[in-house]
């Protein structure tokens, strides 16, 4: 049986996170970009397994930067990053791919391979893992079914609407059965209807046990879903509300 753990180095297998049931733990994070811009200041965060979390805040508040730490697009200057009890900050370059397969990521701009069909885009994420070829069709069909696009599997990204492209991206993020799904402004380019479709899919994924973190500034969605809301402002976490409300959170932040 294929197991993620086999792909990980001993350093990654050694759990050092403080909480047994944590999916994401950030301790004392400062992130400074090569150009000298500091994106995050002293960030502390705990997300438990199975949670659904919104990260809200204006552009440049540090939402995307925080997510980038979790799929190791960026490494922190200091502090520690744990994802599923593995120290992500200390990953070697060669260990990053195995992390990326454990963490699904979707973006505002979908980031699909333009020259591949919907099916091929999803299958690609499996092919890179060296998954057994016989298993690929079954798994791809399963996730495309989940996002409701099995019938359009032969379309190229250019032949799909924005919402559909994002659903392909979600299917691709899910096909490796990640423990954590990150979404960076997933509805930023979509009309309200498509946005709701996407959020419903994310909810369903979360209901299946996957931890979901969504960075967004779509007030309506956040207010309606009544999930945990983490508010960021100028690189710091300023609010952390259970069953939060974007509008209330914004007001609270502005008062602070």
């Amino acid at each position: 049986m294929f197991s993620w753990k086999n792909l990980l180095s001993p350093a990654m297998r050694r759990p050092r996170a403080e909480y047994e049931d944590s999916m994401v733990e950030l301790h004392g994070i400062n992130l400074v970009y090569p150009n000298g811009y500091q994106a995050l200041y002293d960030v502390e965060l705990l997300v438990r397994k199975g949670e659904f979390v919104f990260l809200v805040g204006t552009t440049g508040s540090g939402k995307s930067s925080l997510l980038k730490l979790l799929y190791r697009e960026q490494a922190p200057k200091n502090g520690s990053v744990y994802v599923d009890n593995h120290d992500v900050g200390e990953l070697r370059r060669s260990e990053v791919p195995s992390l990326r397969r454990k963490v699904g990521v979707i973006f505002q701009d979908f980031r699909l391979l333009r020259e591949k069909t919907a099916w091929e885009n999803v299958a690609y994420a499996l092919e890179v893992t060296g998954a057994r070829r016989r298993e690929i069709p079954r798994k791809v069909a399963q996730v495309l079914e989940l996002v409701g696009l099995l019938s359009k599997r032969k379309r190229m990204p250019g032949q799909l609407s924005g919402g559909e492209q994002q659903r392909v991206a979600i299917a691709r993020a899910l096909v490796n059965e990640p423990r954590l799904l990150l979404a960076d402004e997933p509805t930023g380019n979509l009309d309200p209807d498509s946005s709701w479709d996407i959020m419903q899919i994310l909810s369903r994924v979360n209901a299946g046990g996957t931890t979901v973190m969504v960075a967004t500034h779509d007030q309506q969605i956040v207010d309606t879903m009544r999930k945990r809301v983490i508010v960021m402002r100028q690189g710091r976490i300023t609010e952390d509300l259970e069953r939060g409300n974007y509008t209330v959170a914004q007001r609270a932040t502005q008062v602070v």
């Binding site: 799929y71 990053v96 992390l99 990326r100 890179v128």
Partner: peptide
């Protein structure tokens, strides 16, 4: 280059 970015994103190893 965008394709390469995407490949890295979904966890393709460098040699792959």
């Amino acid at each position: 280059r965008r394709d390469i970015e995407v490949m890295q994103l979904v966890g393709a190893a460098g040699w792959f």
